[in-house]
Design a protein around this nucleic acid. Structure first.
Lengths: 249, 249
DNA sequence: CTGAGAAAATAACGCATGTGAAATAACAAT
DNA sequence: ATTGTTATTTCACATGCGTTATTTTCTCAG
């Protein structure tokens, strides 16, 4: 059932049938959340790890005066902070952007998983490292890129991430975000997101309509956005398949 | 010798003499780097984990057209990405901002440490979680805060982090950064950093001179910067000292 | 003490992006 | 179809911050 996660992890290393089964077993407790509802709130005490199975969510933080920053987007297969339960309380909230189906992985299940399945442990570490690399890239995006580069960069990133889990269809992918949400993520006003979107459309770089994004020429968009996918670390060629860890399947 | 790291980790959980010794042993291989030299570069293949013992460093990323973003600051006791060697190549560079003394922790040593010293493993996980929480907060900082809030927020963060490892002296701390470096970190021009710094000085919120920062009234600066230290997770009161893991000392 | 290089400060001007408000357009539920 | 609701688009105007360049102040080696 957590096939998106498995597919994502297998971009990094092949898992055995047993490994995959262990992941299934860890993700038995399912929950659903309505669009726009909070999955967990700042100040809550985290007791388990959330794995998004279906739908989109986001991390966000709200300043005292109402300003809101979306800190990251979660798509199917994404884990919300492995080992987060070590912390006493959440420093941010997570909200469902669409209806969300997720699995709550209890602390004990995760600990057992990493102890008994070293390949899974390594793959989860890889996933964690990629997540923080994405967060770093957002720092670069917000700090240095212009509005048009910034938005183009986000579109490239989301497209490539979705492609990795098989959720793209040719040159298009789902993008269930409003312009206000894009604005909150990019640190821009919704008015300026609208202007920027039109500029991207006029340049023929993107089509964004009906909750779907189409990128007719990904290379062109990458170039215009200074997007370099190296930070997603999708380039391994089996490097991490240890010869002495046979993959029984 | 890695006493800053130990002091930092002990903000989270008490370590036994044995735990501390294991950390010492893992950090035997020492190196020094000159001011402004690169410690590791984008594209390099990481083979070990760097632990800053002395001096300041930063992660940064350079765009093709020369724009540079400083992504994070490293102070003594900071680890540069636990388990980074799982990745094939670095997606960013790390540079020494002052002369730097560090320890290279080999992969095997780290693996052994986490296997044989569960308290240390937990503490390192906590440290990792705090690091990414800091990265998230930078996203909020760059996305939502005005120049003056942004810079004030950075000053609060660095002061609190340094206080945690005993590197503050009353209401002041070292801050060996130039205005250009502050600009590259805050996504602002050096000219505007200068203007903003003057505004902070005029308001009596900071004194910044001779590579030292003084914050006469931390509460006031926190308020002006919308700084909430919760994301540094320094609030545990022994919550993670399991009763069944006696701390021999 | 002196000079050279780096860092900080100042100045003038331009533009990317914000703000607030109003007008359309799309969507969802009856 | 009709309506209420939410999302998008457009407009007019304001401003925070960038850019380029010059000047002043530090720092420290000799």
């Amino acid at each position: 059932m957590p096939h998106h996660l498995i597919r994502k992890l297998e971009q990094f290393t092949k898992l055995s049938r047993d490994d995959r089964q262990a992941l299934e077993n860890a993700a038995v407790k399912r929950r659903t959340f309505a669009e726009h509802s909070d999955i967990i709130q700042e100040g809550d005490s985290p007791s388990h790890v959330n794995l998004i199975l279906e739908g989109w969510a986001c991390r966000y933080k709200q300043l005292d005066d109402g300003r809101r920053q979306i800190i990251s987007f979660f798509v199917p297969g994404d884990l919300c902070d492995t080992h987060v339960y070590l912390l006493r309380e959440m420093d941010h909230s997570i909200a469902a952007l669409t209806p969300v189906r997720l699995a709550e992985i209890p602390r004990a299940a995760l600990d057992q998983l990493t102890e008994e399945h070293p390949r899974v442990m390594k793959a989860l570490w890889w996933d964690t490292l990629v997540s923080v690399a994405i967060q770093r890239e957002w720092t670069v995006n917000l700090g240095q890129r212009t509005a048009i580069e910034r938005l183009g960069h986000l579109f490239c990133e989301l497209f490539v991430r979705l492609r990795g889990i098989g959720l793209t269809d040719g040159d298009s992918c789902p993008l269930p975000l409003t312009q206000v949400e894009l604005a909150d993520a990019m640190g821009l006003s919704n008015v300026h997101i609208n202007r920027t979107l039109q500029e991207l459309r006029r340049a023929g770089l993107v089509v964004f309509k009906g909750k779907r994004l189409t990128i007719p020429d990904l290379a062109a968009l990458q170039k215009a956005s200074l997007f370099n996918p190296n930070y997603l670390h999708l380039d391994h060629e089996g490097r991490h398949l240890d010869a002495n860890e046979p993959v029984a399947d």
